[in-house]
Simulated scan of single mutants.
Amino acid sequence: MTSLPPLIALEEHFFSQAMLAGSTDTYSEQLKHIPGLADKLADVGELRLQSMDAGQVSFQIVSHAPGALSPTQCRSANDQLAQAVQDQPDRFAGFAVLPVSHPAQCADELTRCVRELKFVGALIDNHAADGSYFDGDAYLPLFQTAEQLDVPVYLHPTWPTDAATAALYTGNFSPAASRSIGSSALGWHADVATHVLRLFAAGLFDRLPRLKIIVGHMGEMLPFMLDRIAALSPRWGPRVHSFRHVWDTNIYITTSGNWSVDPMACILRNTKIDHVLYSVDYPFAKNEDGLVFMQNLQQSGLVTPEQLDMIAYKNAETLLNVKASKRWTSSV
């Protein structure tokens, strides 16, 4: 049997001390149903490394879990993460958390994190605390800075606003079902997909043709709808670059927390292989489950060995200028 390639994972979360000092009530369902979640989120050290080894993850890009943070809290969280990266430079790199509810301060914090803390990009909540998306002029400096620094921005799902919950996710079912439907079961994935379309419709990728956006969870449903979006988006106004061009050029997707090979079959038919990257969504998902997924993908016949290498680690090395330093020799 053939050994798996090394794995780089890039949607892997922690709770900063700044967040732990406040409320984590929005995570009540996850904390209730995922054993040991609180301890795993608070750790950027030995517990995380043990889990990485169990899932044969060579290198992890660590990022803050979703939740609105002030500029001061973001700075503190980024400094805390930078120390963890400094302690384990052969296993960790960092994505900056940015105060997206304070757009005027995002570009400066991203610049600080990349230039001073040596982070490799940013992972940010998909909308501000008031529900604002990032297609307006207030957020243009953030995206301009990301393009100038040549680092990606990872749009990560976050909790729906109270208004969205009332309109879309409240019904004749339990509050637990409402919270799950509106978040990780479906709602926040659709919200990220819609956000990407908003950025395109606003002309962001024409203004910033080298901007790199990452979305997780097998592309947040966009690959399944890609042909229809490509067919209908010309109605949205004249563009220098079509949505298909933007998909091929500006958008990267990860596997995070989605362990069926079925959606990968769709992705491999309509998405460039060098824009598909492995991720786990630790600790909300298990590194061991990600390992089984990669074994299944290897055995599926959907990818060549070289394509498997690209998804597993080579694309991340190229996009983020990191290196998969630890390798395993066990066969699968």
Rank of each mutant, 00 (worst) to 15 (best):
K118S: 14
K118A: 14
F119R: 09
F119Q: 06
V120L: 00
V120P: 02
G121T: 05
G121H: 02
G121K: 05
A122K: 03
I124N: 03
A129K: 12
A129E: 14
D130P: 07
G131P: 04
S132W: 04
Y133F: 15
F134T: 04
F134I: 09
D135C: 07
D135A: 11
D135N: 13
G136A: 10
D137Q: 15
A138M: 12
A138I: 09
A138T: 12
L140C: 10
P141E: 09
P141L: 04
L142D: 04
Q144P: 00
Q144W: 01
T145Q: 13
T145N: 11
A146Y: 00
A146H: 03
E147F: 06
E147S: 15
E147H: 10
Q148C: 10
Q148E: 14
Q148Y: 11
Q148W: 10
Q148D: 13
L149H: 10
D150E: 15
D150P: 00
D150N: 15
D150F: 01
V151R: 01
V153I: 13
V153Y: 08
V153F: 07
Y154S: 00
L155S: 02
L155Q: 00
L155F: 11
H156E: 04
H156M: 03
H156R: 09
P157V: 03
P157Q: 09
P157Y: 06
T158K: 06
P160E: 08
T161G: 11
T161D: 09
T161W: 07
D162L: 15
D162C: 12
D162G: 14
